[in-house]
Design a protein around this nucleic acid. Structure first.
Length: 548
RNA sequence: GUCCCCAUGGUCAAGUGGUCAAGACGCCACCCUCUCACGGUGGAAUCAGGGGUUCGACUCCCCUUGGGGAUACCA
């Protein structure tokens, strides 16, 4: 009867399960090589958490000489967003996550495809058919109302909700009944006929998790849906079939999957497939408006969308560094000892991964980013800045493009030597920081120091202009400021002023601040002499003249 | 409700029965210093609570509490 039911339900499926074993043979890889995958669903949104997981997959595979592939998990037609696949591929490319096979913009690449679940219907149905034929899956015609009624009854009886045991109304339908319902055109799903027990009788299963160690939980007892009414598989079924036939060795996924692990274990067992190693990562969290810790959500946290980082102009390398520091607790230490090595040299381990959800920390990202950018040559920063501006601040492209000779020294200001400045965090901030080098963006934003009177300000700038010699070296230049200040009643050294504040109007720092504001517009900046050298004599004088 | 996961400073965390309980970010002070940044020194700040086990618990067990997740024809 089951055989007949299989044919009735899946008349078009001709391949036998065993055939797929030879179509997708075991991979020939070295000892210990891991095969991992990223399985995003194309909802049009990809956030830091996705990248976090992708990184683990990527490191694990490439570190072990294995393979890392991209599989599109588009089994939810309701949530599908047009163009989302490209968005995902773009984002991963931007952050330099490299795949060996899987979905690409030009179609699939690799021998284990198709890599989009929507194109694998025949494979899923083949195995659904097999399960039906073996009597461990069945068509279920229960309507939404029936399911709701069952649920209400279960709630009233304080029983676990779900379709199982006696509540699985269509579990024991006869072939005739099924035929009849199908002829009536009733829609149906295919459910697993679980033989698990619940409560006291439940068997306890235990699974070795790559990150969390031994996991123990009660077996599954629900008749879960494996094929929806549309013939499309649910995640559970697709996961088991795909990861088996794509020969995935390590399934890295978020901890929200932990509770459906028993379903997957049962499915793997029933299908006779070997269980992959599961690695359940902790979720990235954030603090919400009420002050509660909560998982990064797709809807509510647009600022944690990958687009946020692209818009702000965080360098992909900085984001990678940040991710690595929260991914492996010993990464930071390693980085301090190996400042110049590429992060790929770091030996990533699952043991060093945290089991508890980390809160996203923008401060930390910024700090990591500063350290990362200081290692990047100014010329590369220049190119990065232009690339960012092209999409996110097009109005400044014209003042940046083709001006490498002007920009590179600006971006390199104070970065040489043992204690380089770490002024840059991200592209948007970089432009802000150097904007005074562009006449259209230059303006005076800070107040002159309180220690300097209006007459003194004129005297300082006038005197400065009088003795200004663009070819002075840095110490000659500063000596002049010191002399100028002294002649106007300002201490030559801040310490002198602090010791005898009554004897002076202020100190040389105040004098130089006046000059700094005239030239830079702000009371804080890198070395003024170096800025003047980049600005050139004429523009320096022009800015000063405006004050007289 | 049921099931699962998690629990060291504000944040990220080291720690795996005996430590004055690392380090990083942030914060504060000081030093360097013409400003800022960088760098340096120092500081405040943590084992959620209660029971066990043990000569001895941050570490092992139990309970409570708290946080997170699942409980879908979403992934």
């Amino acid at each position: 009867m089951n055989k007949e039911l299989g044919e009735l339900l899946f008349p078009h499926i001709e391949k036998k399960p065993a055939e797929y074993e030879s179509i997708f043979p075991a991979r020939e890889l070295g000892e210990g090589a891991m095969v991992t995958r990223l399985g995003p669903s194309p909802t049009g949104f990809i956030h830091l958490g996705n990248l976090y997981g992708a990184f683990v997959d990527e490191r694990l595979a490439h570190q072990s000489g294995g393979k890392f592939y991209l599989r599109i998990e588009d089994t939810d037609d309701k949530r599908f967003v047009e163009g989302a696949v490209f968005t995902i591929i773009d984002a991963l490319e931007f952050f330099d996550i490299k795949f060996d096979e899987g979905a690409t913009k030009d179609g699939d690449m690799g021998d284990y495809g198709p890599y989009s679940q929507s194109e694998r219907g025949e494979i899923y149905q083949c195995f659904a058919k097999e399960l039906v034929e073996r009597g461990i899956a069945y068509p279920c015609f229960m309507t939404e109302d029936e399911i709701a009624a069952v649920r209400a009854e279960q709630e009233a009886n304080k029983e676990n909700p779900g379709i199982y045991g006696k509540y699985a109304l269509n579990r024991e339908l006869t072939l005739e009944e099924i035929k009849e319902k199908i002829n009536e055109g009733m829609p149906y799903v295919i459910r697993l006929k679980s033989d698990g027990k619940q409560g006291e009788e439940a068997k306890i299963i235990s699974v070795e998790d790559g990150i969390r160690g031994t996991l123990t939980m009660p077996e599954n007892f629900q008749d879960v849906v494996i094929l929806k009414a549309t013939g499309i598989p649910t995640y559970h079924f697709a996961h088991v079939i795909d990861d088996h036939f794509m020969r995935t060795t390590h399934v890295v996924r978020g901890e929200e999957w932990l509770s459906s692990l028993p379903i997957h274990v049962e499915l793997f067992e029933k299908l006779g497939f070997e269980l992959p190693v599961y690695c359940h990562t902790a979720q990235l969290m954030k603090i919400d408006e009420e002050g509660n810790k909560r998982k990064l959500s797709k809807r509510k946290d647009p600022e944690l969308s990958l687009d946020f980082y692209k818009e702000m102009g965080y360098h992909p390398e900085a984001v990678r560094e940040y991710l690595l520091t929260i991914l492996n607790s010993n990464y930071e230490e390693w980085r301090m000892e190996n400042k110049e090595l590429p992060c790929e040299e770091f030996k990533f381990t699952m043991e060093k991964m945290s089991n508890s959800g980390a809160l996203f920390d923008l401060n930390k990202l910024n700090d990591v980013s500063k350290d990362t950018l200081v290692r990047i040559p100014a010329k590369d920063l220049y190119e990065f800045l232009i690339k960012w501006a092209r999409t996110y601040k097009p109005e400044i492209v014209s003042i940046l493009e083709g001006r490498e000779d002007y920009l590179v020294p600006i971006l390199d200001l104070g970065r040489e030597g043992q204690k380089p400045r770490k002024d840059f965090v991200c592209a948007s901030q970089m432009f802000e920081f150097i904007s005074y080098f562009f006449d259209d963006y230059f303006n005076i934003t800070d107040e002159m120091p309180a220690e300097t009177s209006a007459e003194d300000i004129k005297a300082i700038i006038g005197g400065y202009l009088e003795t200004y010699d663009h070819s002075d070296d840095q110490s000659q230049w500063f000596d002049k400021i010191r002399e100028l200040g002294t002649s106007l009643g300002y201490a030559a050294k801040p310490k002198d002023f602090k010791k005898n504040p009554d004897e002076y109007k202020g100190h040389v720092g105040h004098v130089s601040t006046v000059i700094r504001i005239a030239i830079v517009g702000k009371s804080q900046s890198p070395d003024v002499w170096e800025i003047q050298q980049i600005l050139g004599e004429q523009r320096t004088r022009d800015r000063l003249n405006k004050f007289i």
